[in-house]
């Protein structure tokens, strides 16, 4: 079967909405209800965060959601149990995002195999070095047809950007500015970087993430890329939600 991420980009190239949520947040068993609501109300891709004790690339909001998820009892094993039958209900691409340490301890091949079995389409591991992926792990991801998605930033050189584009599969994750998540930087300041990405005619579709929080920033990013990723703003929206489905519906309605 063709990877769902590739299927999506084959039929839709503009305005792709990827929403990040933390697994096991706000309540342990909210993972599937949140994912179901995201699909129902129009998200194109779900990026599911695997909580980690020391998330270096994340700002306070996502850090805190991970801390709560861990306190709720979330772990890789619990997550895979929750995801066991999710493909019966959810058909849009789902990506896992997390940090390398828990994946290393689980075993990279065991982890990727489990992802393939449950129906996960891609993985983002921001602290996995490009060279180590290329030399050690790439054959594993290819064997199971699970895409590893790399990040690029405004400081990434053209040569390195090309290399990351050649290794990334599914799409390339363009971090809007050099920052941790949820910094409220104005993405309009990054016009020249976005234009550089456009002009490079990269082989992957590009989604812009970090500091995308509302319709204005989503539309601004979507002008330059195939779509954008919203994380912190969504976590803020659902953290005190009494009705997940209604909160997700309202949130997406303000973006689209």
């Amino acid at each position: 079967m063709q990877n769902r991420i590739d299927q999506l980009f084959a039929k839709k190239q503009h305005g792709i909405l990827n929403i990040y949520c933390t697994a096991g947040f706000p309540q342990l068993n909210d993972t599937l209800p949140v994912m179901t609501a995201l699909q129902q109300h129009g998200a194109d891709i779900i990026e599911l965060g695997m909580p980690f004790s020391d998330p270096l690339a994340d700002g306070p909001v996502i850090q805190n959601s991970g801390t709560i998820a861990l306190q709720n009892g979330m772990s890789l094993r619990v997550l895979f149990e929750q995801l066991q039958h999710f493909r019966e209900r959810i058909h849009i691409p789902v990506i896992l995002m997390g940090y390398l340490n828990p994946v290393l301890l689980y075993g990279v091949e065991a982890f990727v195999k489990k992802c393939a079995e449950t129906g996960i389409d891609g993985i983002i591991l921001p602290d996995l070095p490009m060279a180590e992926y290329e030399e050690v792990y790439k054959p594993i991801f290819e064997k199971y047809n699970v895409h590893l998605i790399f990040l690029v930033t405004p400081e990434t050189s053209d040569a390195r950007l090309r290399k990351l584009d050649s290794l990334s599969k599914g799409f390339l994750y363009a971090v809007s500015s050099s920052s941790t998540t949820g910094k409220d930087k104005d993405i309009n300041m990054q016009q020249s970087y976005f234009e550089r990405l456009q002009q490079m005619k990269l082989s992957n579709p590009v989604l812009i993430g970090f500091n995308i929080r509302d319709k204005a920033s989503f539309d601004a990013a979507a002008q330059y890329a195939n779509g954008a990723i919203i994380g912190t703003a969504f976590i803020r929206a659902i953290e005190n939600s009494k009705n997940i489905d209604e909160t997700v519906r309202t949130f997406i309605a303000t973006i689209k």
């Binding site: 270096l56 690339a57 390398l100 921001p126 602290d127 996995l128 070095p129 180590e132 790399f150 990040l151 690029v152 930033t153 400081e155 990434t156 050189s157 390195r160 990351l164 971090v175 050099s178 920052s179 941790t180």
Partner: peptide, 11 residues
């Protein structure tokens, strides 16, 4: 050892 850094720290 090594350098397991997110891309933002690479430069």
């Amino acid at each position: 050892g090594g350098a397991y850094i997110p891309e933002m720290l690479y430069p």
